[in-house]
């Protein structure tokens, strides 16, 4: 049985201009030890879907799903107390800005041991050896001297390591990393990604990596979900996706990268991601799609073979044809 199963998750926000569908029928199935990346531009609903899973959305959000279960337990029917026992313990999340997600008023030891005391009971102080062990695990040199450090005394990379230590404190089965390296320098980014994969391998966790950086996906993930305007447009294994993208958006996203450019002018995607008030009829990507036809402008497409498109791009000869169909 899958560790995490989400089927047709939809999140709607009540706004002054009516309801906004930020996440539209998203499905995801994860086993222990999987690394899945969710890629998309800002506004594609990648963070919102995961926040919905964590139960961290404000009251204006309406969450509906056919199924949302974790480790055999149904998250939809669960009461808040039961959910609190899982969130932070079995499922934990790392956020984009390490500087703002740590509490500036408390030192490192307090913040990490608080998680442990919350979920395992006992006194915060009794977890000091465990905190040192965790800090060592995430690669903080001389952890004993860092216990009393406050977040402002740490660099960006160090704060992100502390965040990771906090999140793996309870040995979660599922770790969600929401743009964990976007605010960091490249050399530190490489260190943090390496650390996440190392921890994932050692503990057999499942890892969901939310990012907008295709290069990070290529180097880290096993499976990729591409989101556009709240919808999953393609879900494939990473090698297939990069070698043979089937959705026009995925293809356009890849060919917009400077390293794929064959000449000085880049293959930019015209236009912008549609907002709440200018959603196109039919396929949401049709105004920016170079392959769009009349059908695309009239009817929303259905998912087939893991691709949400009326006219998926052809499979390349020689590429692996037995696509894992998960959608």
């Amino acid at each position: 049985m899958a560790l995490l199963e989400i089927t047709n998750l939809t999140v709607e926000f009540a706004t002054a201009h009516g309801s906004l569908r930020a996440v539209d029928r998203v499905s995801l199935s994860l086993d222990a030890g999987d690394i899945v990346a969710i890629v998309g531009e800002s506004g594609s609903g990648k963070s919102v879907a995961m926040l919905a899973l964590m139960g961290l959305l404000p009251w204006t959000a309406t969450i509906t799903a056919d199924r949302m279960s974790f480790d055999g337990k149904d998250l939809l029917t669960m009461n808040p107390k039961q959910r609190r026992a899982i969130i932070g313990k079995d499922i934990s999340m790392i956020f984009q800005e390490p500087m703002t997600s740590l509490n500036p008023c408390f030192n490192v030891e307090y913040q990490i041991s608080e998680v442990l005391a919350q979920h395992f009971g006992g006194k915060r102080r009794s977890y000091k050896p465990r905190v040192i062990e965790l800090l060592k695990k995430v690669g903080i040199p001389a952890p004993e001297t860092r216990l009393k450090a406050y977040p402002h005394q740490l660099s960006g990379g160090m704060s992100q390591r502390v965040m990771i230590a906090m999140m793996i404190a309870c040995e979660p089965k599922l770790l969600i990393a929401d743009e964990p390296t976007t605010a960091l320098d490249v050399t530190i980014q490489a260190q943090i990604l390496e650390l996440l994969v190392e921890l994932q391998k050692a503990n057999g966790m499942a890892l969901v990596l939310i990012t907008h950086d295709m290069a990070v996906v290529a180097e880290t993930a096993d499976r990729v979900v591409v989101q556009y305007a709240g919808q999953q447009v393609e879900q494939r294994s990473v090698i297939e996706l990069f070698n043979n993208p089937r959705h026009p958006y995925t293809e356009a996203l890849l060919s917009a990268l400077p390293e794929y450019a064959k000449e000085k002018t880049l293959n930019a995607i015209p236009g912008v991601v549609p907002g709440q008030l200018d959603r196109p009829v039919g396929c949401l990507f049709n105004p920016r799609c170079e392959y769009a036809q009349d059908l695309c402008r009239q009817q929303p497409p259905q998912k087939s073979e893991g691709v949400l498109c009326h006219y998926p791009l052809p499979l390349k000869a020689g590429s692996n044809s037995h696509t894992e169909v998960i959608l």
């Binding site: 990604l193 290069a215 390293e259």
Partner: peptide, 25 residues
Amino acid sequence: QALLSATPQANTDRKRKRIRLTGEL
């Protein structure tokens, strides 16, 4: 060299050897 090898590349060939830069600035 380290900066170049730390920059992720959008291809799925993972055989590239990374120069590990330890520590911070």
